[in-house]
Amino acid sequence: MPAGRPRRIVARRDGPMLVEGPVEIALEDGTTVSSDRFCVALCTCRRSRIYPWCDTSHRKHSPAPRPGSGD
């Protein structure tokens, strides 16, 4: 790590870790993924289907449809 300001990571227990991009991530199977987005959201709940990136799978679920979900 070059000298200077340490890289800031925003951590919250109810969501992903936010890291300033670009990033390169070494995964346990030996592969490497990278992103040059200005900010990346790293999955911490381990439910993401696009791990290591967050896909909002950490969200709470409700049984009933809500108004305004007509996407």
Binding site: S62, S69, D71
Partner: peptide, 14 residues
Amino acid sequence: DELLVEPLDGQGVS
């Protein structure tokens, strides 16, 4: 906050 809760049985277009 309401939008941050994902319905289990959504009925939307998607």
